[in-house]
Design a protein around this nucleic acid. Sequence first.
DNA 1: CCATAATACGTGAATATACACCTAATTGAA
DNA 2: TTCAATTAGGTGTATATTCACGTATTATGG
Lengths: 148, 148
Amino acid sequence: MDQHAIQDDLTRQVNCTCFNLRKATRAVTQYYDRMIKPSGLRGTQFTLLAALSEMKAITITHLADFLMMDRTTLTRNLRPLQKQGYIERSMGDDQRRREIRLTPKGVAIYQNAKPLWEKAQSVLITRMGEATLKDLLKALSETVSAVE
Amino acid sequence: MDQHAIQDDLTRQVNCTCFNLRKATRAVTQYYDRMIKPSGLRGTQFTLLAALSEMKAITITHLADFLMMDRTTLTRNLRPLQKQGYIERSMGDDQRRREIRLTPKGVAIYQNAKPLWEKAQSVLITRMGEATLKDLLKALSETVSAVE
DNA sequence: CCATAATACGTGAATATACACCTAATTGAA
DNA sequence: TTCAATTAGGTGTATATTCACGTATTATGG
């Protein structure tokens, strides 16, 4: 390959949707994790507790659908939360279903972490601007639609 | 909490930058992985080979800086590539440095996978539109700046 | 020259992700 | 009613990610 072809490769690679998304996600995840760390939670764990706090009880499959997450990923992400006693599982009427809900301890830590998440979110919005956030969410939504 | 507060929580949570970024990254990563799978590579592995194909030899730390990736993450991501014989490592002049470069086998699989990546990229751009891609990359860039 | 700081890198431990495959319970059609 | 298809869920295996910590090498100031 000559230099022009190499340069073309580099340019295209730098614009790779997957690479850029992963890069941004790494940076933003680290930011949220730092901000929420005093609560003892990860950003991803906060997301799960927040979702569960909006619902009485829900099955793994339904929660995975709601969060657009692979079911088996969710199963494993719930493990640390169960180990810490933040959630509990029980059989549903249908013996195939496992219902998940927050424990009082889980509600407490969620309430404890919420201000930290609020702060993380508001600081980020201040820094990037509301317009950019709006653009980002719109672009992300359209991107997800494009790969489905 | 009353119903209004719950609704507020849900609305804010749904707009969480971290959650939405992670969600989109999951979807896009799965898409690229599906498209590139015939080559035997993951999308992330293709990215590493592509970066290495642009350079003669590079240290772990420098490559991690270039890709804006944690150094220890990169160390571990390089392992499967080395196990497959796609890259090789050698001591630099400075005995602390380990230099990484593509092997001929690595060049070959990269060339083999490149059309698959090109296809994945072009199909995605067709579906989402060039304007949306441009918006996405701009928003991602501004977001990364905001958390640094 | 030598002690110390800085640099380069690896490992342990934990979470995050997902595909392929398996089991158990329920449903539904012959 | 019975048995095959569907549904709900877990496990094995592999990669991806990062923080805290440790080791080895080089650079540097006194």
